[in-house]
Design a protein around this nucleic acid. Sequence first.
DNA 1: CGTGGCCGTCCCGCCCAACGGAACGGTCGC
DNA 2: GCGACCGTTCCGTTGGGCGGGACGGCCACG
Lengths: 272, 272
Amino acid sequence: MQRNNGAGNADADRSTTVPPGRPGPTRGNVLDRGVRLLRAFRPSEGALRLTELSRRTGLPKATVHRLAEQLTALGLLQRAPAGFLLGIGLFELGELVPVKLRLREAALPFMQDLYEATHETIHLGVRDGLDVIYADKIRGHAGIDTPSRVGGRLPLTCTGVGKVLLAYAGQGLIDEVLAQPLPRLTAHSVTDPGRLADELAQIRYSGVGYDRQEAAPRLSCVASPVLVHGQIVAALSISVPAHQLQPARLAPAVRTASLALSRVLSRAPDNH
Amino acid sequence: MQRNNGAGNADADRSTTVPPGRPGPTRGNVLDRGVRLLRAFRPSEGALRLTELSRRTGLPKATVHRLAEQLTALGLLQRAPAGFLLGIGLFELGELVPVKLRLREAALPFMQDLYEATHETIHLGVRDGLDVIYADKIRGHAGIDTPSRVGGRLPLTCTGVGKVLLAYAGQGLIDEVLAQPLPRLTAHSVTDPGRLADELAQIRYSGVGYDRQEAAPRLSCVASPVLVHGQIVAALSISVPAHQLQPARLAPAVRTASLALSRVLSRAPDNH
DNA sequence: CGTGGCCGTCCCGCCCAACGGAACGGTCGC
DNA sequence: GCGACCGTTCCGTTGGGCGGGACGGCCACG
């Protein structure tokens, strides 16, 4: 029997998988299948029909039917005229996750300050593996379009928030990132390891990081770390149209907010 | 072994299995148990230890151990020094739920407008059964404390947002609510069905509803409906200290925002 | 230093519930 | 009317979920 991820550092990589020779007929356990069903839904899509779910998950139709019915009873899915949608129960659970519950609660007022001072789009991001996950984002009517989405992922090296998170994440992770080819989202994405290393050092020196159209064309941003007891827990950023990037004005603003948030978080119950 | 924590509320009631005469030894399927594990977590609590999870769910320790391990591999839980926490994967999934993804995206700029005009706490709520679920909430440093939480529930009849949602929900639901005793959160909560009916009519007439310390002491609010094709989908509100409730100033603001949001949502792809 | 409580982990045989191929009935559009 | 595709239901098979129990580590006791 497989003992499966001893230390379980990285992620997923469920060792189950099909033993090479066999075209495994049944693989996976029930929970895995249920989650696979939920993950079949993507943003900006509507309801999914039973057959489509079956296609995406590779599960037999009868199985999907049974599981989807159970998930619906649990509130994780809901029926729509045109198939299934993710249910409100999933939203309720998601809001209980500490990254959301604690961090956002503390950060929101400072994000509001930043928004009011600049009227630009504000991000709050945390690190998961080699990605940044956006914990929150606020924008007004005029806010610039960004590839980010609350709950969405982007590579650490392609965004301001991500580079800041990486800069303070420790040498081990930095080495790991530099060792493999750097992902590229635009023509401006940093793909030279040496240049990235320099930039990370510069971030640690100044407490501010930049993204110059590295995640999306015409989009730049200024980011700053949120540290608790010397440990990085998140990063804040302001996103602006590339031609309006004014470090002299934005850097102090974002730095001030991140320092103030760091201070608030440092004296908190903090059950980690 | 006692028959699991009752949890007598409506919920589930899966008609399958459990022939009436038998004291079902194990009831519930795998997915149900997994979700029960996730729902054992409550806001403002830290990590839960294996034994505590076992206590709360009524599941044997060995079972909890196995399930928790699987959920961790799936990213729905994560290990902490002091036990388990809800995992970031759950947050990712929660952010894909349509109520969050679509509604919030559209509503946020209008909520920002309201915040900037008043600097009070702004809520966005949707209805689920007889509760309001808060889809979003923004507040600044000075924002008043509220019993609400993003992803949290309160009874429809005890909040401004809730009463507005109820007023437009259709006579069937209104009758259902009026038929049973009305919940009470404070001494000011409306518990007289006749008075509530009047108030709902007044809301439909004016497009604005009030909460006068009915959800929490010293907290009042002004709410207004978001309608798409005549159907209510959400409600917006401004919460203020009770002694500062100024309908003449706040009602037009919240009404304007809700109408503008209604208009935006009415011309959208809207895959329901 | 023994002891007893509580913890997380692991083992393993029992057996039931998950499984899915297949058949069915409804609803379109040609 | 016919075929394509849909969601639903049935039911025999079996693999994996199940959990009692054992184990070893870690305290706070006496």
